[in-house]
Simulated scan of single mutants.
Amino acid sequence: MTEEEPEAIRRRPGGRAARVRQAVLTAAMEVLAEEGIARLTIAGVAARAGVNETTVYRRWGTREKLVLDAMLAGSSAGIPVPDTGAVRTDLAAFARALAEYLATPTGRSVARAAALSSDDPDLAEAWQTFWQSRLDQAGVIVTRAVERGELPADTDTALVLELLCSPLQTRAVLGHRPIEPDLPERLTSLVLDGLRARTDG
């Protein structure tokens, strides 16, 4: 495969560069799902994607940045942020999408990898960036609810999403109990009931 200069790649974002990026990110997520993050290498991803290793290094620079980009792309596509017009249905839909994503090999691999502590500061930083990015994306659910008057102005966005999502992620990582079909709605009710009790008190 013929290499292109970075400037040429940037001038054609919808052409070969976009196809290469998608192929590499898809390959990275496949390796992550099949072998885990410990065995993911740029060389292995490049080979699976059918591109030169130097192409991957030039675009992403490090394995950690590649993993981060792949996880963000995969989770954004697999866990869309809904806008139903009401906080209850928004949270329930988001939790259902998360549960469905965690039921896939890729989703389980991401959850398990993200739950591991890392002595590698670059990898630890990548995980932190991943979680913060997902929090920022999903946090609009709470922001909209506050603007509509459904939630108090001082609602802790991160806490709401953690209370909603952590039980699903724990079950996916530990596998001790299944994620029942009605669990997203039950978690949504528990979170909102808790917020209302705090407000009423």
Score class of each variant (00 low, 15 high):
98 L>E: 09
196 R>C: 01
20 V>G: 00
147 E>I: 05
162 E>Y: 12
39 R>M: 09
135 L>G: 01
52 N>W: 04
180 E>S: 15
185 E>M: 07
27 A>E: 03
3 E>C: 12
116 L>P: 06
25 L>C: 05
196 R>Y: 00
53 E>F: 01
128 Q>N: 14
17 A>C: 10
158 A>P: 02
182 D>Q: 12
113 A>T: 14
51 V>P: 00
108 R>S: 08
30 E>W: 04
147 E>L: 04
49 A>R: 01
181 P>H: 08
83 D>K: 12
47 A>D: 14
60 W>Q: 01
123 L>I: 10
174 L>N: 13
62 T>A: 05
111 A>P: 05
174 L>G: 15
3 E>T: 15
120 D>C: 09
149 G>C: 00
177 R>D: 13
19 R>Q: 13
123 L>S: 14
196 R>W: 10
42 I>Q: 10
20 V>W: 04
176 H>N: 15
60 W>K: 03
90 D>C: 01
78 G>W: 01
188 T>C: 03
40 L>S: 07
84 T>Y: 01
118 S>E: 11
13 P>R: 11
43 A>N: 13
86 A>T: 12
133 S>I: 02
194 G>A: 01
170 T>G: 11
76 S>W: 10
26 T>L: 10
177 R>Y: 14
92 A>I: 06
166 S>K: 13
18 A>L: 12
163 L>M: 14
127 W>D: 07
183 L>F: 03
47 A>H: 11
62 T>Y: 04
56 V>P: 01
28 A>D: 05
128 Q>A: 15
73 A>K: 10
199 T>W: 11
110 V>C: 07
201 G>S: 14
184 P>I: 02
18 A>E: 14
196 R>G: 00
68 L>W: 04
170 T>V: 14
178 P>C: 07
81 V>Q: 06
129 T>Y: 11
30 E>M: 10
82 P>T: 08
170 T>P: 06
53 E>N: 12
173 V>M: 07
121 P>G: 09
39 R>K: 15
119 D>E: 15
27 A>G: 11
38 A>F: 08
113 A>K: 02
11 R>W: 13
2 T>F: 12
84 T>M: 07
183 L>E: 14
32 L>S: 08
49 A>K: 07
30 E>I: 11
81 V>L: 07
16 R>I: 10
136 D>E: 11
27 A>W: 03
189 S>G: 10
83 D>F: 08
183 L>S: 01
185 E>I: 00
58 R>M: 05
83 D>H: 14
34 E>K: 13
39 R>Y: 12
175 G>H: 11
194 G>L: 00
88 R>N: 03
59 R>L: 06
151 L>N: 03
198 R>W: 05
81 V>H: 08
35 E>V: 12
117 S>G: 15
74 G>P: 05
111 A>Q: 02
39 R>W: 11
67 V>N: 02
188 T>L: 06
164 L>P: 00
45 V>K: 08
46 A>Q: 05
36 G>H: 10
169 Q>I: 15
178 P>A: 13
138 A>N: 03
113 A>F: 00
56 V>A: 00
62 T>N: 04
156 D>C: 03
49 A>T: 07
191 V>E: 03
